Amino acid sequence: MTHRLIRSSTLSTRAEYAYAAVVAPASALVVTAGACPLDADGAIVAPGDVRAQTQQVMANLVVSLAEAGASLTDVVKTTVYVASSDRSELGLAWEVVRDAFGDHDAPSTLLGVAVLGYEGQLVEVEAVAAIAAP
């Protein structure tokens, strides 16, 4: 096993993710760039739609991880950025991310930010994964 997710028996169970991850010494780390809601032509998908953009982001993240030899179940940490100060929009993005990961509840940070890199971009997700060392 390349990693182990840590769930605290002392901290609140309100968080929908593990509180920490331990990566085995013989593992290789995969660090992704922020996955963006871009289609194959480089256009932002679903302007103004946090949920649809997050779905595209997660699809793009799956591809990035796969090309590095990893999958969502190898992820040990994510950071989710949502260009909004509205907590309900952060919640919409988180629902999509959480559903994509299923039972693999890797530690995560969810942030509302003022702006992201592309015009019309509302969501970005970066990940760190642990895989068997080559």
Rank of each mutant, 00 (worst) to 15 (best):
V57P: 04
T79H: 03
T73N: 13
V82P: 07
G69V: 08
T79I: 13
S88G: 07
A70K: 01
V76I: 15
T78C: 14
A83F: 10
A83R: 06
E95W: 00
V57F: 04
L65G: 01
M58V: 04
K77M: 12
A66Q: 12
T79D: 07
V76Q: 04
K77Y: 15
S84L: 07
V82T: 14
L65F: 03
D74H: 13
T78D: 07
A93F: 03
A70C: 03
E67R: 13
L61K: 01
W94I: 04
D74R: 06
A83P: 11
S71Y: 07
G69Y: 07
N60V: 01
T73S: 12
V80P: 00
A83K: 07
A70S: 04
L65E: 02
V76K: 08
D74C: 09
M58A: 02
L90Y: 08
E67Q: 14
K77T: 05
T78Q: 10
D74G: 06
N60S: 03
A83W: 10
K77D: 14
E89Y: 04
L65R: 08
S88T: 15
E95S: 11
S88A: 13
Y81R: 11
A66I: 01
S85Y: 11
G69H: 05
W94C: 09
S88Y: 06
Q56R: 15
T73I: 07
V76D: 09
D86K: 10
E89Q: 15
G91T: 14
V57K: 02
E95R: 13
Y81I: 05
V80H: 06
S84M: 05
Q56K: 11
D74Q: 03
Q56A: 13
